[in-house]
Amino acid sequence: MFSSITRFKRLLVFVALAVMLTITFETAQQLYYINRYEIAFGVTFFELLKEQSYQWILWMVLGFSLFSYIKHTKSETNSRAYYVKLILSILGLVVLNILIISILQMTFNGVSFSGSLFFNEYIVFYIFQKAPMYTLGYIAISGILHLYFSNEKLQIKVQQLSDVKVANELLYEKLSAYTDDKAQVLTIKIGNKKRVVPVAQISWIESDDYCVKVHTEDGDSLSMRTSLKALEGKLGANFLRVHRKAIVNMDFVKEFTLANPPKIILHTQDEIQVSKSQLKGVRDFLGTLEIS
């Protein structure tokens, strides 16, 4: 909340500075033309600044309705109707600005109201002097507000996703106390069919080019398009890598011999060579087991 208020204050400061620079520029520009073409005499910078200031303050006050409109319709920014209404709102605000300024200026000058004078001298003058700047200003403000509220929506979405992530992590921690994330079955494609093999029935797995052969306790040998490395992370702690080409289900181990070369003999009578690099791991694993 605090960071949101800070961003909004920064936005207001930015808009205020932009308006101040615009007022100063227009005042200097108007003074230049008055002096250059001798339109009037004795006009000072601060007199013109005062006149420009109230006109732009009016522009800002009326512009708050634009802020309110964009804020309350920020969920509709993907629709064409939203942009049509926004453009019409900007044009309406510009017209309203010109009407009010013309009336005020006519009053300040002490001129009796006349429809033709009001339109020809004031409305037309301020259309050429103010309408382009006012329109561009409102468009710029609309763009800034659109980006601001889009960022706000994005921050809310990120926070929601963060909350979901935290909730899922807590749920995972609770569930992991009762189960693990290791595979319980392997799904192996055979022709146009898929066979589901319980991991507990797999005696060992060997590498076979770009595939692996999954050997089961029933003596079946099923080809599966994957790698030993990919399977190793999915299998339980009882599956041990004994060779670069073999993973063994240590629950099926019947004998372990240190003959040259060392090998494991399974209850299925399969014999799997143990590599030197994996020998220590196999011995450590079997050191806690009674081999029958």
Rank of each mutant, 00 (worst) to 15 (best):
F2K: 14
S4Q: 11
F8W: 15
L12E: 13
V15I: 14
A16V: 10
M20V: 05
L21A: 09
L21K: 09
T24E: 06
E26Q: 08
E26F: 05
A28T: 07
Y33Q: 05
N35H: 09
F45A: 08
F45C: 05
F46I: 03
E47R: 14
E47Q: 08
L49H: 12
E51C: 06
S53H: 09
M60H: 12
M60P: 07
V61M: 10
L62N: 13
F64Q: 14
S65L: 03
S65I: 13
Y69V: 08
K74A: 12
E76F: 07
R80M: 02
A81N: 05
V84S: 02
V84G: 02
K85T: 02
I87S: 13
I87M: 10
L88S: 07
S89V: 04
L91M: 14
G92A: 04
L93I: 09
V95H: 11
I100L: 15
L104H: 03
T107N: 08
F108R: 06
F108Y: 02
F108Q: 04
N109H: 07
F113K: 08
S114F: 05
G115F: 14
S116M: 08
S116Q: 14
N120I: 00
E121C: 00
Y122A: 00
I123C: 03
I123Y: 02
V124A: 03
F128H: 15
P132I: 06
M133E: 07
M133I: 09
Y134P: 11
G137P: 13
Y138M: 11
I139A: 03
H146T: 09
I156M: 12
V158M: 14
D163A: 15
V166I: 09
L170N: 13
Y172T: 06
L175M: 11
S176R: 12
A177Y: 06
Q184T: 10
V185S: 12
I188Q: 12
I190W: 12
G191D: 05
G191F: 11
K193A: 08
K193H: 12
W204G: 10
I205Y: 00
E206Y: 05
Y210W: 04
V212N: 08
V214H: 03
T216V: 04
E217P: 13
D218C: 01
G219P: 03
R225Q: 12
L228F: 12
A230M: 14
E232L: 04
G233L: 13
G233Q: 15
L235K: 01
G236F: 03
F239R: 01
F239D: 00
V242Q: 01
K245Y: 00
A246F: 01
I247N: 00
V248T: 00
D251Q: 01
E255G: 00
L258G: 05
N260F: 08
I264V: 03
I265A: 02
H267V: 00
I272A: 00
Q273Y: 08
K276R: 15
K280M: 12
D284H: 14
F285V: 02
L286N: 07
T288L: 14
E290W: 05
